[in-house]
Each structure stands twice: as structure tokens, then as C-alpha cells.
Design a protein around this nucleic acid. Structure first.
Lengths: 364, 364
DNA sequence: TGTCAACACGAAAACGTTTTCGCTAGGAAT
DNA sequence: ATTCCTAGCGAAAACGTTTTCGTGTTGACA
């Protein structure tokens, strides 16, 4: 197999020194035009590409950022990656992706692997298992070794770093308020067990919206799904749970679900029970993915703007990386830097579609 | 900012040589137990992690593979990545992802960037623009520099490398045959313009299935959508096209669509026109994604097994990488190696759901 | 003719490893 | 007492760059 051509080989071939080749290729004024031309031509001919690895070793930076997410077959995380990739590329960085599959062990292993020099910083979202264990030593160890981290969506107070989050609670409040405005009297909540922070926050938002409108929360109207099992492959279980839930609470006229899947499944079950959407029952979901857009009827959702989250995360990380660079040139060292971490909140937005009643006629 | 601790620093601190530290940490028998213990304890205390970059430079391999895909917010590509990541991790490799966004330029730039030493090999799927331009020099240049490539799904004969493809044509044949068996007399095809190979192949499959059953293909029953525009954001256009298509061909009783989106949109339109699925019209799509599973009625699809494609691709690539290693130790050099590239075909499978009639009663 | 600047280039260090080889000291064997 | 082996460690090269600091050869100028 052919090896990539190196400076040394070019140097030997053209009978000059490595330094000369390096300078010629970077267009240094030090080298005569003759030599420069000759070297550049030769390099082009042999398709020379500098070895990033060697550069990384020298510069102590790799110009790549590591992403660590729980799952990639997931619309929200995909859009976040796309956002990260956008600004990373624009700012001259590459992106390397690790998957934890919601497992604590895989998260730790992946971090150790990537932290071992391959990347300059992390952008990550914590796995469910880690949230359950509440063991965050690997994050703190990485930060201690001077590698900055930005967390998004699933964050945790125990780790000191920049964070980008969705205003889950506010988003839920907005959604439920919309249902209330649309004359729903008995609003159900379909949520998960609360060990993942986002589920808890959205539940809180639901409760708060009710409280603000002086509606008493009815425990019967809250359905908690155990999402530790792989829902995608146990769709019937989910459907059955929702069906009995609906049967036991025939008065439900509005549903707020903490994710797309629960929402469209709720719609499916409702229709199976002969209910019309949105006339008999209105539904709002969370996460604006493909399901919401293409379901029939299309689903009104709380959009989290995943791409924006990714973009902001990347900007935060790269800003910090480049601030570090500047710091080395500067005499003033801000020892308090560790304390001014940023927590950025991305506003949610309600995308109105067919699963809720349009109130346009009221606004005339 | 704290820098990562290096062998040299440990050596200085413990007043031994760098070599000793290196050997002690790798558990070499050469070093006395005393020293080994002391060094290992110190290393653990300071959380020493070897610098992969330095290792990569020395070993001339990075143990990471580069993925280059047109789009990440796409169920099929996500599952492929998951598959790649699975076997890569199992076999000790990392995964770095680049996105071309269907753009030729971004594809070239990304390849140059990654090929510059960051990775040992590529797994990629060609962007639409590249397929249109038919300019494949960047692939061949990369291969010439000794970096192996595996292409999946969107492949091209002009590049000599391992390939993993879906039997698109056969899958389409199966789907259409199923419609024929289910007594459909006028089967429509909703497809794309054919510059992307997969669209063409699926169209061919449609035609072949008809021919094999001695049904004459009716040009009116083929709808070609211009997918150069971003369909996700021009949903109404798609719906309108399909609606007029249906209105002009009221005899349609079966639809084969080359992707999920077209299929569910067709179902949506059909229902809007008062048609019942699957009684009046049966629908089969391609690609088994979330839409198919959660649409109402759920969609019968041709599954491509994206994860399997990813796993096979990764295995092919890593096999080749490790064969290269072995080659260097061997005296026999197979100069014909370049010619025995593998083209692996992943079988499709029809997932039957509610959008086609069940024929169980016939099989009794 | 001697001095000096400018020009064109080379040598070497540095980044963090691993690995090969060599060296020293001590004990065993002769 | 001399030789030899071996355990335990260090020196140095190598991977591919960039960059700093020489160094030698011009030519011009005094």
C-alpha cells in the first residue's frame, strides 16, 4: 500500500532540506522563487497533504470537538448535531461523535477515549443511566484536566460548565395554557417517570399552568409511562396503557404529552375510540420532529429548536477554547474564570397544526 | 489552564527516565516491582492518560474511521451510523462524522480535512450534487493515497472500492408483486427524478414486477417528484402534486412510493379524497422509519436494514485496514489486491402493516 | 581589499509516545 | 580473582511538522 508522501520524502527527492520544503509550501519569503515553484509543483504532483496528527501534536490542539449523545436515531439529537456541525465547520473545527446508548459505562469509556488527545473539548448530553446513578466524576475529571465541556438539554447542577438548555417548564406551561385557552376542561398529561430531568420539568410546567389558572390538578389525569423499556419495540404496551387511561377518564378533552411519540399514539388511540381530533379532544406534543409534521392530523407541538441548541453549544465551546489561547499570551490571569459559566436558555415555540382548534375566528 | 500530565513530567517528578515510566505503566517485566508500583500510583493520582495523538503519529494509525454522509437528520443515515459505531467500538475504533449536506463542495472539503491524517479509512454515501456532476476525483485521489473507502447505499461504478448496497431493485419488485398479489389492478409509482441511483433502481424494480406479471406499464401512473427542492419545507407542493395525480387517475388501487414521506403523504391525500386504506387503495413505501411505524394507518414498507448496512460497512473497512497491517509483515505481496473489492448486497424485507390487505385468510 | 547586509538555505529542537539497544552494578560461576 | 550473566534502568531514535537560529555565499560599498 502506498503511504502518504511526507515533507522528508519531498526534501530527499528534490535534494533540499525539510525546512526548505516546509517554508516553500507555506509560501515563506525566505525561499527563492525558483525553489518555491519547484517544490510546490512537486508537492501538487504527488498530492501532498500535511499530516494533521503531527500538527496537533505540535500545536497541542486538534481543532476537533467531541460530541457525546445518548442516541443518534432520534430526531432531536440529529438536529443538534447538525447545528454543532454547522458552526464548527464555519469556525474551522471538525466534529467527532460518540454514542452512549443511554449507558453509564459506554459514556465513561467514550469520554476516556476521546479525552485522550483526540479532541479539544466536549459537547454532550447526559445518558439516562448516568442521571439515575448520579455519578458525575467522569465529567469533573475531564474538566480538571483542562478540557472544557458544554452540556445541552440533559444537564446537571453538579458539574461546573457551560450549559445550553430548553425552557422545558415554560414550554410545557405554554402548551397547557393553550389547551386551557382552547376551552379544554380536563387536560391529561402523558409523561415519563421523572428521573430524567426534562420529564420532570415538563410535568412541573403542566402543574404550574393548571395552578395559574386555578384548576386543581387531578392525579387520575396523569399517566406515567415507564420509559426504561425500549418503547419503539413495545408499541402495543404503550397503546394499551393509553387506551385504558382514556377509557377510565372519559372526560378528557385535552392531552399534553411530553414527547412526539406519546402524542401521536394518544391521537391514534383516541381515534380508535371514536373520538374526533381536535373537536372532541385536542393534543399537544413536545419536540417538533417528523412525526408531528406528518401525522394525520398533524400535531401541534412545542418546538425545541434543536439546531439552535447545537449552534449555541458549539459557539460557547469554541469561544472558551479560543479564550484559553488568548490567555496564554496575556499577563493577566483571571483565576475566577472558573466561576463565570454560562447557562443559556433556548426559548421554545408552539407550532400550531391540526391537532388543536384554531382560534383565528375569535381574534377577528 | 491545567495541561494534561505527560510521561516527561512524571519522570522528572519521580527522578527516573521517561522510558522507565513508559515501561512501568505498561507493566513491563524490565522494571522492578518497587519502581513500577511507585510510578503507577503517581500516575493514577495525577490521572495520567496517554496522548493518543502522539501514539497515532508513531503508529501511523489513528484507530478512527471517518463517516461522510449527505444528511444526518434522516432516519436511514442515523441507523447506518449506529451500526457503524457498534462494530467500530467493539473492534476498538472511534468514529468521526462529516456532513456533506448533499453538496459537492462540502463533500470535497470534508474529505480533504479528514484524510489529512485524522482517520484510517472512510465509510461514505455520495451526495446528490456529486452524483449529478459525476465528478469522483476526490474519492479516487483519497484511495490513491492509500486510504481505503467503503461506500454504502449511494454507490458508483467509477470508484474502485468495497461497497455495501441495498437490493433496491429487488425490494421494489417484491413490493409491487405484493400489491399485485393483493389484487391491485392499477398500481401507481411515486418516485423521484432519477439522477440518484436508488430512485432509478426502485423505478426499474417497479417496471420489472409489472412486466413479469404481464401488466403493461402505464406512463400516466408514474409520478415523478422533483426532489431538488427541500421537500420537508414544501409539503403543500408535494400534497398538491399527489392530489392532482390521484384526481387524474381515479382507477388507482395501489401505490408504491420510493420513500416514506411520499407514501404517508399519498395516504393523507387519499383519505382526504374519501378513499379508504387499504380497502380502496393499498400503499407500500420504501425505508422503514418512524413515519411508517407511527402513521395511521401504519405503513407497509420495504425495510433496508440500515443498521446492518452500517455494521457490514464497518467490518469491511476494518478488515481491510487490518489486512494492510498484516501485509507489511508478510513477504508475499498480492499486487492484484486492488481488484478483489467486495460488493455486498443487503437483502430488503417487507414489513407488513395496515396499509395493505392482510392475506392471512387466503393462506389457511 | 575588507566589511556588512541581504539572501537562501540547513540544523535542530519541540510536541508525547514506544521501543531498541546499551550500560552499570551486583551476584554467581569458574 | 576473573569472567559472565542478568536485573534494572537510561539514551536515543522515530513518527511529521513548524520555527528559531544559525551559516555560507553573494554583491555592494567604503
Amino acid at each position: 500500500m502506498k503511504r502518504k508522501i511526507t515533507l522528508k520524502q519531498i526534501a530527499k527527492e528534490l535534494d533540499v532540506s525539510v525546512s526548505t520544503v516546509s517554508k516553500a509550501l507555506s509560501g515563506s519569503k525566505e525561499i527563492s522563487e525558483d525553489t518555491t515553484q519547484k517544490i510546490q509543483a512537486f508537492a501538487k504532483l504527488y498530492n501532498y497533504r500535511p499530516n494533521n496528527i503531527a500538527l496537533s501534536l505540535k500545536n497541542r490542539k486538534t481543532k476537533t470537538i467531541g460530541i457525546l449523545i445518548p442516541e443518534i436515531v432520534h430526531h432531536f439529537f440529529s438536529t443538534v448535531i447538525r447545528g454543532i456541525e454547522r458552526v464548527a465547520n464555519r469556525r474551522g473545527y471538525n466534529v467527532i461523535v460518540g454514542l452512549s446508548n443511554e449507558s453509564f459505562t459506554k459514556e465513561v469509556i467514550n469520554m476516556e477515549l476521546l479525552a485522550g488527545g483526540s479532541i479539544d473539548g466536549f459537547i454532550l448530553s447526559i445518558s439516562k443511566e448516568t442521571l439515575l446513578k448520579q455519578d458525575y466524576h467522569h465529567f469533573n475529571a475531564t474538566i480538571d484536566q483542562g478540557m472544557p465541556i458544554v452540556m445541552f438539554d440533559r444537564v446537571v447542577a453538579e458539574v461546573d460548565c457551560d450549559k445550553v438548555i430548553v425552557d422545558d417548564m415554560k414550554g410545557a406551561v405554554k402548551a397547557v395554557k393553550k389547551l386551557i385557552e382552547n376551552d379544554c376542561k380536563n387536560i391529561a398529561l402523558i409523561t415519563t417517570m421523572d428521573y430524567v430531568s426534562v420529564g420532570r420539568l415538563r410535568t412541573q410546567g403542566y402543574l404550574q399552568a393548571l395552578q395559574e389558572n386555578e384548576i386543581e390538578a387531578e392525579p387520575n389525569l396523569i399517566l406515567k409511562i415507564d420509559d426504561s423499556l425500549d418503547v419503539e419495540n413495545h408499541l402495543e404496551i404503550l397503546e394499551n396503557e393509553i387506551e385504558t387511561f382514556f377509557r377510565m377518564n372519559k372526560n378528557i378533552d385535552g392531552v399534553f404529552a411530553v414527547n412526539e411519540l406519546y402524542a401521536v399514539t394518544a391521537m391514534k388511540v383516541a381515534r380508535k375510540l371514536g373520538l374526533n381530533i381536535p373537536d372532541d379532544i385536542q393534543v399537544i406534543g413536545f419536540t417538533d420532529g417528523v412525526l408531528s409534521k406528518h401525522a394525520t392530523p398533524s400535531l401541534t407541538t412545542v418546538s425545541q429548536h434543536g439546531q439552535k441548541i447545537g449552534e449555541q453549544s458549539a459557539n460557547l465551546l469554541i469561544d472558551r477554547l479560543e479564550a484559553e489561547d488568548a490567555e496564554q499570551d496575556s499577563y493577566i490571569v483571571n483565576t475566577d474564570r472558573k466561576k463565570d459559566f454560562i447557562k443559556m436558555v433556548i426559548e421554545t415555540e408552539i407550532i400550531e397544526r391540526e391537532s388543536t382548534k384554531s382560534k383565528i375566528y375569535l381574534e377577528e
